[in-house]
Write a protein that binds this DNA or RNA. Structure first.
Lengths: 350, 350
DNA sequence: CTGAAAGCGCTTACAG
DNA sequence: CTGAAAGCGCTTACAG
């Protein structure tokens, strides 16, 4: 039974060994104060710390300085394969900067999110990386007012009062629509994501704008919005389109890959083939989506990079509190796979 | 600009408002010491805390008590879809118990893992849930000797000196072999996982034993072990089997789903079809594996439950330090999908 | 049952 | 450049 760290070496021990006052030892050992100490003294202290195997007590330091060198990462759904690579990017960057990652997942539940925010504050995280922003998000604004540094990733708040790393959603959808139009599609449906989130909203707006630019009239019966970015919602909404329209669409633009998977299911239920009868496109290019049946045409976004950039924004903010807000928009690219094919005559349904 | 928590309500404020000494206020507010205080006094203190909106300073408490109510979760590869649901299970359980989850990922790198362990200790996490155990793992043993509570998940250390939640690997593989034998397969290959990990090892042992029981001779040319649980390694090892044997196997048992995906690739490279020419079976039933082309027959393990159980074991250990070691073995089940089919005559290769 | 006091291990104005 | 001292906000033996 090792005795925890009861017998740990403290700063006093180091000071004694080096023949200096604890205050001096502290200054010698800290980057920001080292310059205040005579080089020879620094050397002596560092040597003493080395031989004694001194490890500063983070708890004491945090207690004193109110900094924990920890960052909370709040995601909506850890089971959505979009997020793990993003978290990985965050974690890599944060670890490199000496921060620790406290992960929490809201399960798309607002109450749960509130609790997480409160707890993160109580834990005195130095900052937060939030992937659960709503277009209007009073809770998040309140949080930021409490003084913690907050950076948004993937989704953004509309008033742009946060630094963020996200993706040019409209550009992504434009590429999708152009691709489908190029394949001769006329009746193009959209299963949009939740309109309360910037991603769901911007992609839908982008869809409507691109269709207009391409001179394709949008049949209102072919545009629906899901309540969440889940397979189930995708299936349900796609089914409603297929059930409502007399003519099936020849292509469906899904708000993201999860919704696209739902579209696959709905098509199968309706006895329609993808891509022979209906093309489907997703958004995100999440892991393994290229190995599906059929492989999904989708918009590739740099998951890892998104996380890493968000982390960098936060670190910058922590190191220099008056740094200006920065909105980073990464450019996505279309990846064409087997789920899209040239348009044929629309299938009669219903 | 809200002033951080500079103006926070402290225990002294509560004590003053309630007309008691801070020590008494502390005792009144803590579950374990409340019984020492007269009920009316407790009431007064609690009321004062309520009106003042007192929130205890965790940092001060942690500093004093050496407990942080935080738990480190160490996984080998966040990009492996097996782990997110496991982490979710851990997190749910831990959150419910008032602990915070500090996530770190080793990327299968021993050096990185060492650094993570050291950092977790410096952060004074109360315990660790480790998904990166090796069959022989001196680093982990050292860690446990330092006094932190450690619980293993998924993989175990052979000397059984840790509590753990894992899966009966041998039983899982037995079900696989029986399934294949039932389909008439004779030439069954095994692309095993790393033999330095309990999962890779136990499944391989289980494979050999089950084949023996089933009266199927094992062709040594058809059994190889991968260096890591990755798609690339799976492809490489499966290719080596296909390249070496004069007769292709009619089925491949992969050490896990990632390796099975690699087998898919290798078969495709070799111009062989799955399942028509060669059946493939995985292990883990990781998310989305049922939507692949073809859907993978695999061994289902309760990912979420595994994480939740490990978390519970840890919490038990933290609440009662002398709790006996507990090795929990969850029972997996075979899920038959499109990647396995009745045996045909083996295909001539090379 | 409650108060008074010490102390956890640091950091940081304040002197000198 | 360094020392002496205060103090961060709690918890917990120790008295009474």
């Amino acid at each position: 039974m090792a005795n925890d760290a009861k017998d740990a070496v403290t700063l006093r021990d180091v000071a004694r060994a080096a023949g200096v006052h604890p205050g001096t030892a502290s200054r010698a050992l800290n980057d920001s104060t080292r310059s205040l100490v005579r080089p020879e003294t620094v050397e002596r202290v560092v040597a003493a710390a080395g031989t004694l195997g001194y490890r500063p007590n983070y708890l004491a330091r945090s207690f004193k300085t109110h900094q924990t060198r920890s960052v909370g990462v709040v995601i909506p759904d850890i089971a959505n394969p979009l997020f793990p690579p993003m978290v990985l990017g965050v974690e890599d960057r944060l670890t490199a900067e000496g921060y620790v990652t406290v992960l929490a997942n809201t399960q798309n539940d607002a109450r749960r999110r509130e609790r997480i925010f409160a707890e993160m504050l109580e834990r005195h995280v130095d900052g937060l990386i939030v992937a659960t922003a709503q277009r209007e998000d009073p809770a998040l604004v309140t949080l930021a007012h409490s003084g913690v540094a907050v950076v948004l990733v993937n989704r953004i708040v509309e008033d742009r009062s946060f630094s963020s790393a996200s993706v040019d959603d409209a550009a992504g959808v434009r590429a999708v629509v152009n691709h489908l139009v190029g394949l001769g599609h006329e009746r193009i449906a959209h299963v949009a994501g939740p309109q309360s989130m910037s991603t769901g909203y911007a992609r839908r707006q982008g869809f409507l704008a691109s269709m207009r630019s391409a001179g394709r009239p949008v049949d209102p019966d072919l545009v629906v919005a899901a309540d969440s970015f889940t397979i189930e919602e995708g299936e349900r909404r796609a089914a409603s389109i297929l059930g409502r329209a007399a003519l099936a669409p020849t292509a469906i633009v899904a708000g993201n890959d999860m919704l696209a998977l739902g579209c696959y299911s709905a098509l199968e239920q309706a006895g329609l083939r993808c891509p022979e009868d209906v093309s489907v496109v997703g958004f995100n290019d999440m892991p393994f989506i290229d190995r599906l049946n059929p492989p999904l045409t989708t918009v590739r976004i740099p998951h890892y990079e998104l996380g890493a950039q968000a982390a960098q924004l936060l670190v910058d903010q922590l190191h220099q509190p008056d740094v200006p807000l920065k909105v980073l928009l990464l450019v996505p690219s279309l990846v064409v796979r087997g789920s899209t094919a040239p348009a044929r005559a629309p299938v009669q349904v219903g």
